[in-house]
């Protein structure tokens, strides 16, 4: 028995009927074609599937699509605004914060929330904030570096991040 849901994804209202067991990540990838969100495990450990749900990062493999009914989702595809990369995306690029790229969407989504909650984190706080995201390539070194760099850019030029801040606020962040 399918259930109707209405979810705002990256600012766009999506209405659909889903099987109750459809995971949010499958809804995003299969129904909406937003394949930037990845599936890396089946036990909620790896964080490749992290998206923001009403502003809070969640593992979209541990959330049913029906649980997102009436809520707003931001995925990696929704971060860049008007063709401008989000400062966190830019910092990952500048600092070689990715290699194979598979964990990257989840990492970046986690870091956007981390920096929103703690705009000036220490390296140890960044590492603690990445507990729910596994990367097998980088040894985390450059992800931490990228996060600290993004914090600096966002502090130095808050104007450049306005668009994204608004976007996150629109999703309840």
């Amino acid at each position: 028995m399918k259930v109707p849901i209405k979810v705002t994804v990256n600012g766009k209202v999506c209405e659909s009927e889903v099987e109750p067991r459809t995971l949010l990540v499958h809804f995003l990838r299969e129904e909406l074609g937003l394949t930037g969100t990845k599936i890396g495990c089946d036990t909620s450990q790896c964080g490749a599937c992290v998206v923001r749900l009403d502003g809070a990062t969640v593992k979209s493999c541990t959330c049913l699509a029906v649980q997102a009914d009436g809520m707003a989702v931001t995925t990696i595809e929704g971060l860049a605004q008007n063709g401008n990369l989000h400062p966190v995306q830019e910092a990952f690029w500048d600092n070689h914060g990715l290699q194979c790229g598979y964990c990257t969407a989840g990492m970046i989504m986690t870091v956007t929330e981390l920096l929103q909650r703690n705009p000036h984190p220490s390296a140890d706080e960044v590492r603690a904030g990445l507990e729910g995201n596994i990367c097998r390539c980088t040894g985390y070194h450059n992800i931490v570096k990228a996060t600290l760099a993004a914090a600096e850019t966002m502090a130095a030029a808050p104007a450049s991040t306005t668009a994204t801040t608004e976007a996150t606020e629109a999703t309840g962040g």
Binding site: S44, A56, V58, T110
Partner: peptide
């Protein structure tokens, strides 16, 4: 408890 995403949900 857990990680940030676990704490959020």
């Amino acid at each position: 408890i857990g990680d940030p995403q676990v704490r959020n949900r």
